[in-house]
């Protein structure tokens, strides 16, 4: 038996909106640690890892580890029916073939339940090694989204370079080139407006902008995004999910042959 009650149901709505276009079907894993998901896009270029820790739920009952295969587009359709202020409860029986999403309005005057069919998905869990990153950039998520959107109107790939000057996002296309440099800026009124660059050594990597743009659909989850880079390793683009966890997108770089 599984019963997870999330007071801030809008977090789950936002999580689904951020992954539904990247991944079609995925297993949600439920354990004492929390509610998690790890899945690749169909071309195995990107991987998404979500963790919502059990402590972040108002009520968290998971009698035994459970893996629930869901079509993320269908799950997003159901969660779209929850109000932004609604409390969302996820319920499932051990060995059952459905999951129920219950939506309660804050004043308890409207209660809805949506039952969705589960699916069998071959689970492919990847081991993600702990990496020492050459550079970690923390910046406003809206700024990062704006940069990815702007650059994708010029080119298909972005070169992200971190030096002691700052972080540079560059692209080139048929009509020309573009370079955007963001410098460290910690003298801001609000901490979420800061740009912080931790560099062990300079690093430069090339990525497909199409995927970066897809990751920025997680922008509503967090004011800040963290971009972790190491030579010839997938970049990690991380958005915190309130105080309860994270959504991390891993993107394989484009490498010289």
């Amino acid at each position: 038996m599984l019963e997870l009650r999330l007071v801030q149901g809008s977090l789950l709505k936002k999580v689904l909106e951020s992954v539904k276009d990247l991944v079609n079907d995925a297993n949600f894993d439920c354990s004492a640690t929390g509610f998690s998901l790890q899945a690749m896009d169909s071309s195995h270029v990107a991987l998404v890892a979500l963790l919502l820790r059990s402590e972040g739920f108002e009520h968290y009952r998971c009698d035994r580890n459970l893996s629930m295969g869901m079509n993320l587009n269908n799950m997003a359709k159901m969660l779209k029916c929850a109000g932004n202020d609604d409390i969302v409860t996820i319920k499932a029986d051990d060995g059952g073939d459905t999951v129920t999403f219950m939506f309660e309005s804050p004043t308890q005057d409207k209660i809805a339940d949506f039952e969705m069919k589960l699916m069998d998905i071959d689970s492919e869990h990847l081991g993600i090694p702990e990496a020492e990153f050459q550079a970690i950039v923390r910046m406003p998520s809206a700024e990062f989204a704006r940069i990815c959107k702007d650059l994708s109107s010029i080119g298909d790939t972005v070169v992200i370079s971190v030096t002691k000057e700052g972080v540079k996002f560059s692209t080139r296309g048929d009509i020309g080139t573009a370079n955007i440099v963001c410098r460290q800026n910690t003298t801001v009124d609000k901490p979420e407006d800061a740009t912080v660059i931790e560099m062990q050594e300079p690093v430069s990597l090339t990525f497909a902008l199409r995927y970066m743009n897809s990751f920025t659909k997680a922008t509503p989850l967090s004011n800040q995004v963290t971009i972790s880079l190491s030579s010839e390793l997938p970049v990690v683009v991380e958005y915190k999910v309130a105080e309860m966890g994270y959504i991390r997108f891993y993107l394989a770089p484009k490498l010289e042959e």
Partner: peptide, 14 residues
């Protein structure tokens, strides 16, 4: 042009 890498060449199945 650089070639698109694959996640499975970085992270192994467990």
């Amino acid at each position: 042009d650089p070639k698109q890498g694959n996640i499975l060449s970085f992270f192994k199945r467990v």
